[in-house]
Each structure stands twice: as C-alpha cells, then as structure tokens.
Amino acid sequence: MKNLFLTQALYNRWANARLAAELNKLSPEQLTATSAVNFGSILAIANHLVLADRLWLTRFTGQGAPVPSVDAVPYAALPALAAARVVEEDRTIAFFRALDPASLGDTLAFTTTDGRPMALPLAVCISHFFNHQTHHRGQMHGLLGACGIKTADIDLLGFERETGAYAALL
C-alpha cells in the first residue's frame, strides 16, 4: 500500500506539471472566468487544490501552519501558484517516502475547517487526499477543453507507462 501511495504522490507531481503547462496557455480572463464548477474559476480550483493539500499534509504530519479555509485565492498569478504547488508536492513525496506502513491502520483525529472534531482511518484519509486531487484536476482539464485547449492526458496509467514509477518501487 505504501508503494501505491508513493506512486500516487509522484503521479500527482507529474500530472500537476502537465496541467500547469496547459494553464499557462490561458489568458488572464480565461483563467479567472466565472464557471459553475466548484470554487468558480480555473484559478480558484487550482488555489483550492494547493490549500487542501496543505491542510491534509498538516493533518498527516502535524507540521505546517493551520489552513483556516480552502476557499481562498492567495495565488492570483500562475508563477506564485506553481511555486506553492511544488512546495506541497515536495512535502507529499517526503511524507510518503517516510511513511511507516504499520501506520496505515491508525486513526487520524483532526478538526474540520468548520470546527468539528473528526476521526477517520488514516488509509481512507490518504485515499481521499489523492482522489480529491484527481477530481479537481479533472474539472480543470475539462474547463481547459471548454477554452479550446486540447490538453495532454493526465491519467495514472499514462504516468506509469511513461515513467515506470510503481514498477521501480517493487
């Protein structure tokens, strides 16, 4: 399971880099155009992903500043957003490289962003962490298409075919 999670962390870096290259093709108006999807625009979704990753990594590691909201847009420019994205990806990969497989049976206790105490299996929280990223990248991928940009595939199997990352961990 640890190798699968580490592969997903490496995959996220790969998929996010491919998606970032496509986001750079958008005009500022396209990037911030109001949309009916979660968070209201491509830029807002991309910011949400950085903030949500930061929130979950702080929960997983107990390190990092609290994230009071995942709805903000602290990175209005793509270079700053890309730099923040890399920081969270580095944290993610480091966490999964160091993860003790025995901890996957643990319960993660945390407080939700609306202040409710919560306790869930760590493995389920980690699965949610990766599923959440895939979900919102898919939204951005679709919105890029709506802007007339034919984006490269960013699926996990494409990553494995290209890199052999999972196979290399076995």
Rank of each mutant, 00 (worst) to 15 (best):
T92P: 10
F110T: 04
A102W: 05
A123T: 10
S69A: 10
A102S: 11
D100M: 09
N12F: 06
L31S: 04
A146Y: 04
L23T: 03
Q133P: 04
K25D: 04
S35V: 13
L81V: 02
M140N: 00
T107H: 05
D53G: 14
Q133T: 07
F60W: 06
F95H: 13
V73T: 15
Y11R: 05
H132D: 04
D155M: 13
G164N: 12
A119H: 10
F95D: 07
A15S: 11
A168G: 09
F39S: 06
V37T: 14
F60M: 07
L144I: 01
G40V: 08
T58H: 11
D114M: 04
L108I: 06
L122P: 11
L99F: 07
Y11M: 04
L23W: 01
L49R: 07
Y11S: 04
S27C: 03
P68E: 12
A146W: 03
L104S: 06
T58A: 14
Q133I: 06
N47D: 06
I126L: 13
A83F: 08
L170E: 02
N38C: 13
A65K: 12
Q30E: 03
C147M: 06
K25I: 02
H48L: 07
W56R: 03
P66K: 01
H128N: 07
I149N: 00
A98W: 11
Q63S: 10
R54C: 12
D90M: 13
F95C: 08
T7V: 02
W56L: 11
V86K: 15
G148C: 00
Y166R: 10
T134R: 00
V67E: 08
G64K: 08
T111I: 07
A9Q: 05
L31C: 03
L55T: 09
V86A: 15
L57F: 06
E88V: 13
T7C: 06
P66A: 03
V87W: 10
A98C: 12
W56Q: 07
L156P: 14
I149P: 00
A83D: 14
F39A: 05
L23Y: 02
A119Y: 09
L144Q: 00
I42Q: 01
D155N: 15
D106F: 10
H135A: 00
Q139T: 01
R97I: 14
N47G: 04
T113S: 07
S35K: 14
V86E: 15
N131R: 02
K2V: 03
A65W: 05
H135F: 05
A102F: 05
L169P: 08
A77I: 09
A15P: 03
A165M: 11
D153T: 15
F39L: 05
L99K: 06
C125G: 07
L143G: 00
C125I: 10
L143I: 00
